[in-house]
């Protein structure tokens, strides 16, 4: 099969468009899910907060104002077909150029610092993005794009369990993560869980789990049941929207798994706030 040539400019312009769309519109399932939760909530305070979140989705779209002032770290998962040749620039450069241009075009917040510890100086254009590249077959590029805010990210955790850990242990750990986060992670949450792999790949699984459509059921029956069980216990925790009490602490739980070492059972929990901003493009 001959190589398919894709120009850097095309990828850049598609990325800029995608960043614009998620700045002003969350996952398409967010609004109907918030409306359903608002109807089911019994607490007046929780209903009031959910009403505010529903209004926010409308306001962001109507006013072209970002859903959240924290326009996040740009996270991209790139699946690059082995028959693709990109002409004009490296993928790394293309993503960061797109981000820099989108930052100007959509008035995104500059939220990145050059050095984590000693020189916390703002990069002033929201670069760099966090880029994960995976090689696949075929002649297409598929890019998953998300804006990840700092509040929920700060409350995420990872634990290397021994293989003797049970399903109950994992449920308890996820619940504990959500409880420790309290209202700091901006509930209602979307909970991404990675199970398996190793220390670093488990965290990536948890992150990538957040890039699925909000109401996407897990194709594996056992993990689908586990997602439902975890969602139920989280919503019985009483934290509620913005920690105001109520039944709406999480909107969805997504699990991704991978094979792992005979000695290990890694579990990572990546929390996402209700400003659930992600999309995907295929070129």
């Amino acid at each position: 099969m001959p190589l398919r040539i894709i120009k850097a400019d095309l990828i850049e312009s598609e990325l800029i468009k995608a960043i614009g769309s998620i700045t002003f519109e969350p996952d398409p399932d967010i609004l109907p899910t918030l409306l359903r939760c608002q109807k089911e909530e019994t607490s007046e305070l929780a209903k009031d907060v959910l009403n505010c979140l529903v209004e926010n989705v409308h306001c962001a779209k109507e006013d072209s104002i970002p859903l959240c002032q924290d326009t996040g770290t740009l996270v991209v998962f790139i699946q690059l077909g082995s028959n693709v040749h990109i002409e004009g620039a490296s993928l790394n450069k293309i993503v960061n150029m797109a981000l820099e241009k989108a930052y100007e075009k959509y008035y995104l917040r500059a939220s990145q610092v050059i050095d984590p510890l000693y020189k916390r100086i703002n990069t002033a254009n929201n670069t760099p993005a966090i880029i994960h590249l995976r090689l696949t077959e075929g002649d297409q590029i598929r890019i998953l794009i998300g804006q990840k805010g700092g509040g929920a990210e700060n409350m995420s955790r990872l634990k290397m369990f021994p293989p003797s850990a049970s399903e109950d242990d994992i449920v308890a750990y996820v619940l504990e993560t959500v409880q420790l986060a309290g209202s700091k992670a901006c509930p209602p949450l979307v909970v991404g869980i990675g199970i398996g792999g190793n220390f670093e790949s488990c965290a990536l699984l948890a992150k990538e789990a957040l890039f699925q459509p909000l109401q996407h059921p897990n194709p594996h029956p056992e993990y689908n049941m586990l997602e439902q069980r975890i969602l139920k216990v989280i919503n019985e925790s009483g934290i509620g929207p913005q920690g105001m009490g109520g039944h709406t602490t999480a909107l969805a739980v997504h699990i991704l798994t991978a094979p792992c070492h005979i000695a290990s059972l890694p579990v990572a929990v990546n929390l996402q706030c209700h400003a659930h901003r992600h999309t995907e493009i295929t070129i």
């Binding site: 979140l53 926010n56 959240c68 209202s183």
Partner: peptide, 13 residues
């Protein structure tokens, strides 16, 4: 006081 997090387009009004 707490304001609603992640409702920044609504609050901007």
């Amino acid at each position: 006081l707490v304001a609603v997090g992640g409702a920044a387009a609504y609050l901007a009004r």
